[in-house]
Design a protein around this nucleic acid. Structure first.
Lengths: 228, 228
DNA sequence: CTATCATTGTGAATGATTTCACAAGGTGTC
DNA sequence: GACACCTTGTGAAATCATTCACAATGATAG
């Protein structure tokens, strides 16, 4: 039986805006993103309701953790029944800011950039790559997916002109900080960094790092420390 | 003035093996990996000593955090002076298990795999990709870097034969769990997963995930929640 | 309509991580 | 050799995150 039709479910939830004052931990946000993916899978299989326990099992966490995470933003479930899949899906999309599209630029047209631009999940989640930059004259002017690679020198004006919000940095480590300074100056306020370097960003700019060497070294540590 | 020559520094440290009993948090290990990179940079510039404060500044953390992280494994510094760069470097390499090479296999010869195999930092850190697998008959047999792409069906025997320790999973989400089950059965006990899916591994197998969509959604959340 | 069952939402308890703060140890100067 | 100065290593305190446990709520069956 469907929960969407029950009047209580929507009326009860707290306004999301009010909840934003509290500080939400990065790990909680990561889990929400994961719940979202799991809910989309459940939804596409036609599942209508899900309990915190089932969601926790699929996410590899505990039912209490799921409920706590969701309670940071409101009350979305029904006691005795669980959560309406499609409704919770929509709530999390709203919480994460995914009910709109985001304007993204890619700086660095190398192998990592190439992997990103062909990654379907990106577009389907609302992240639209609207510009690609590189310094290499052999690459500039070439078509890359739906984009033509632009010269690095045009970066400032294009980012500002297209009002790009998120920059993906996929350049060599020694060039990364310079790129960051320039994209921030052009109004970008969120950065996903693939370069193996610690970047400095001004307050108000969000930064996430993806560092494969750090992950591999974490695995090496785990293997080393369990050895006997 | 160099610290290496002073007798106290080495004699004083606790044996690493003994310290391993305590549980080390994942975030502490991440920071160690970062310190290592920063120390290598300092070392290559000829810097001989570094204080916890300077290392913390470069790593974007606090001096107390640096000292606490290091104290989990021993006493490597000299009061009043700081740490000998090349010595601390070596200690961290030992802690993380990087004084040896690791046998790595790559499963999935797509764009992400391509980015990995050409990534120099990998090899220089001791991670040697010794086999590459794919299911696509058009790819099997092609040369990829120093490796020839092998057919997926050979995976089990090759992994076991080469005693591969770490597998990098770069296949589509719906194929990932099957691959994991097979690599684990072939003796692999650490996995770096790029597929956007939650994998299940038996106890004793280490797993790290790199999930670009999760990172991007984290940025979307940050942008959304700071908006007014 | 009452009893039973399932599952949420949430304070309180526990556990983990980070920060504080300072004694201890070591350098350099006069 | 005494004094002034730095910086580590580390208990204790503070903060942050997770887990527990249960009252509250709603569904369902008879």
């Amino acid at each position: 039986m469907s929960l969407q039709s029950l009047p209580g479910a929507v009326a009860k939830k707290e306004p999301v805006a009010e909840m934003r004052s509290a500080k939400i931990s990065e790990s909680a946000v990561r889990r929400l993103s994961l719940y979202l993916r799991l809910l989309q899978e459940a939804d596409s299989l036609g599942q209508e309701t899900i309990s915190s326990e089932e969601l926790a099992d699929r996410a590899g966490t505990t039912a209490a953790q799921v409920r706590k995470d969701l309670s940071l933003f409101g009350s979305f479930g029904k006691r005795g029944l669980g959560y309406a899949v499609s409704e919770l899906l929509q709530e999390i999309r709203e919480i994460l800011g995914l009910n709109r599209s985001w304007r993204v630029a890619l700086v660095g047209a190398g192998k990592i950039g190439s992997a990103l631009i062909t990654y379907r999940n990106f577009r389907t989640r609302g992240f639209h790559i609207e510009a690609v930059f590189d310094t290499d004259p052999d690459k500039v002017g070439k078509r890359w997916g739906t984009q033509t690679i632009l010269d690095d020198t045009e970066m400032g004006s294009v980012l500002a002109g297209k009002r790009i919000e998120i920059a993906v940095i996929a350049v060599p480590a020694d060039a990364a900080q310079g790129v960051v300074d320039r994209v921030v100056a052009s109004g970008v306020s969120a950065i996903l960094n693939f370069a193996p370097v610690r970047l400095r960003v001004p307050k108000g700019v969000s930064l996430r790092n993806v560092d494969m060497v750090v992950e591999m070294e974490g695995l090496a540590f785990a293997l080393t420390s369990t050895e006997r």
